[in-house]
């Protein structure tokens, strides 16, 4: 057995175990942490397949940003475990039915013989100086430049749409205008008045 295959089995075991525990875990935050562990295991497996850019992007995007927002939501929600567990038996038959269907689908696809080892070509191993990211960039910006740009524009539209949905003028909002606060001058807040010290005595 090669060293890389030992690594494969270690990360594979981590992935399967964390995914299984993720489904079983009762604490939502623990489940989220297990999901992060499975992301890391997948990233390590991809590194073994020489897809280092994909692996790092998975960690950067999903672990670094998406899961942080997930945890945010989980923290803000007050999840009452007892109400969730109360309806466990009512949903049990439906749950069992759906899982049987899913397992059957996976079993059917896998037993069709399409994914046997002899059907799948072994990925070619590259030499040490091979740059995965350069190859990817060349493909992305020459052959697939229009789909790539279209996807980018689509994402931009989604961002703008999401912001316009939540961004509305609320009259009760006590927002502070920071640029106004920062650009304030001494003359806006303070007036230097020259009052002669003798004048008050004269009026008396």
């Amino acid at each position: 057995m090669e060293f890389s295959s030992i690594l494969f089995y270690v990360f594979g075991f981590c992935l399967v175990a964390s995914s299984a525990m993720l489904v079983i875990a009762r604490n939502t935050l623990k489940a989220a942490m297990l999901l992060i562990l499975s992301f890391f295991s997948v990233a390590s497996l991809w590194l073994l397949l020489e897809a280092e850019f994909l692996a790092i992007t998975l960690i950067l995007v999903y672990v670094g940003a998406v899961m942080v927002l997930f945890l945010f939501v989980i923290k803000m929600l007050n999840i009452d475990q007892s109400t969730i567990r109360a309806k466990f038996t009512t949903y049990l038959p439906l749950g069992i039915f759906i899982s049987i269907v899913v397992i059957a689908q996976i079993a059917l696809v896998l037993s069709a013989g399409q994914f046997d080892l002899e059907n799948v070509e072994e990925p070619t191993r590259h030499v040490a100086g091979y740059s995965n990211i350069t190859e990817l960039a060349t493909d992305l910006y020459t052959t697939y430049v229009y789909p790539f740009e279209l996807a980018a524009v689509l994402l931009l539209i989604a961002i703008i749409a999401a912001i316009t949905l939540v961004h509305r003028k609320d009259s009760r909002s006590k927002k502070q205008n920071i640029s106004e606060q920062i650009s304030v001058q001494a003359s806006d807040r303070m007036r230097l008045a020259s009052i002669s010290s003798t004048k008050s005595k004269e009026t008396k």
Binding site: E52, F53, T57, I59, L60, V63, G64, N132, I133
Partner: peptide, 14 residues
């Protein structure tokens, strides 16, 4: 590492 700057950003975000 060939993508060390990305690695720094990714692990830093963890």
């Amino acid at each position: 590492l060939d993508i060390s700057l990305l690695y720094v950003l990714a692990i830093g975000s963890v």
